[in-house]
Simulated assay, not measured.
Amino acid sequence: MSDGRETSLPLPKFVEWSIFPFEGDLRVRQPKPLYPTDRPRTGEPGGGPCPACAAADDEYIWVDKHWRVSAARPSGVPVQLFLETREHLDMDDLDDELAGELGQMTVRLDRAIQAIGGIGRVHVARWGDGGSHFHMWFYGRPRGAGQMLGFCLPMWAQILPPTPDELWQANMAVVATELAKVSGTAIASP
C-alpha cells in the first residue's frame, strides 16, 4: 500500500490440510530484508567450532571410514537420524566417489530404518543452514500416521512426546546392526 501500512501475505493452502499440525488464527510474518551474505554456520570462520569434527565415534550409532550416523533426540517419531561425512565437507565438496556412496548410504539407511518394523515411509531432508559439516536428516514415519505425511513430519517429530527411551535405544540398535551387515561398525547394540 502506498500509505505505508504493511499488507499481510496470504496464507498458503497447506494450512488447511489435515496433516498441518497447527490450527486457529495464523498469519504470515513479514519477510525481512535480505542480508548482504548468509550468516556463518558452525565450522565456518566466525560461526564457531564444528561439533561433528569434535565428536568421538562412540557418540554415533554406526561408523565407517567415510560416514557416521547419529541419533537425534528427543523425537516423537520412532527414528530420527543424521548421516554425516567423517571428513569436514559440505555437499558441494563431495567428490564423485563420495557422491555415489551418499546415494548408496541413503538407500541403506532407508532399508535399515524399515527393518525396525512399523515404519510407513522414511523421509530424507537436507537443509544445512546451521552447520557446514555435511549432514542429512532421516525420519522414520510410523505406518498409519496419516497426519505425519510429507513436509509436516519434522514439525510433528518436535511436537509429539518423545519415543520412550527403551524403544528408542532398541530402534537405534536395529539400524546400526542392519548397516553393519554391509560395512562399518555398529556402536549401538541390543
Results as ranks from 00 to 15, higher is better:
Pro190Trp: 02
Val174Pro: 04
Ala54Asn: 11
Ala188Asp: 12
Thr42Arg: 15
Met136Val: 09
Tyr35Lys: 11
Trp137Gln: 15
Lys181Pro: 06
Tyr35Gln: 14
Leu102Gln: 11
Gln158Asp: 08
Pro154His: 04
Phe151Ala: 08
Tyr35Asp: 07
Phe138Pro: 05
Ala99Ile: 07
Asp110Arg: 00
Ser8Pro: 10
Ala54Gly: 12
Ala52Lys: 04
Arg121Pro: 01
Gly47Lys: 11
Asp165Thr: 13
Arg27Leu: 02
Arg41Lys: 15
Met91His: 13
Pro33His: 05
Thr7Arg: 12
Trp127Ala: 11
Gly131Glu: 01
Glu97His: 07
His123Pro: 01
Glu87His: 12
Arg126Glu: 05
Ser132Gly: 13
Arg126Cys: 06
Pro40Gln: 04
Arg108Ala: 10
Ile187Thr: 14
Tyr60Cys: 13
Leu98Pro: 10
Ala55Arg: 12
Asp57Pro: 09
His123Cys: 01
Pro12Arg: 12
Glu6Asn: 10
Gly4Glu: 09
Val77Leu: 15
Gly4Arg: 00
Asp64Glu: 09
Glu97Gly: 09
His66Gly: 03
Arg41Phe: 02
Leu81Ile: 12
Ile113Tyr: 03
Cys50Ser: 11
Met148Gln: 06
Ile19Ala: 15
Pro40Ser: 09
Gly103Tyr: 04
Gln114Arg: 14
Asp95Thr: 08
Leu9Ser: 15
Glu101Lys: 01
Glu6Val: 06
Ala71Trp: 07
Val124Ser: 01
Val107Lys: 01
Met136Ala: 13
Arg41Leu: 10
Asp38Met: 10
Arg29Tyr: 02
Gly131Arg: 00
Asp90Trp: 13
Pro21Leu: 06
Gly144Leu: 02
Trp137Gly: 08
Gly120Trp: 01
Pro33Cys: 01
Val174Met: 05
Asp58Tyr: 10
Arg39Met: 12
Phe20Ala: 12
Val124Tyr: 06
Met136Ile: 04
Pro164Phe: 03
Thr7Phe: 05
Val175Trp: 08
Gly184Trp: 04
Gly130Ser: 14
Arg141Thr: 04
Val79Ile: 15
Gly48Gln: 12
Leu102Phe: 12
Ala52Gly: 01
Ala125Asn: 00
Pro40Arg: 06
Pro74Trp: 09
Gly131Trp: 04
Cys152Leu: 00
Glu6Gly: 10
Thr185Leu: 08
Pro164Ser: 03
Leu109Thr: 10
Leu102Asp: 04
Glu166Ile: 08
Arg86Thr: 15
Tyr60His: 09
Leu153Tyr: 05
Arg29Phe: 03
Gly120Lys: 05
Glu6Gln: 10
Val175Glu: 04
Gly184Leu: 01
Gly103Leu: 04
Gly118Glu: 10
Ala186Phe: 07
Trp67Ala: 02
Pro31Asn: 01
Gly131Ser: 05
Arg86Val: 13
Met105His: 00
Met148Cys: 06
Ala72Thr: 14
Arg86Trp: 07
His88Gly: 14
Tyr139Ser: 04
Gln80Lys: 09
Arg108Met: 04
Met1Asn: 03
Asp165Ser: 12
Glu23Ser: 15
Ala157Phe: 00
Pro31Ile: 01
Ser75Pro: 11
His135Ala: 11
Ser70Met: 00
Glu101Ile: 02
Leu94Gln: 12
Glu59Gln: 14
Trp137Pro: 01
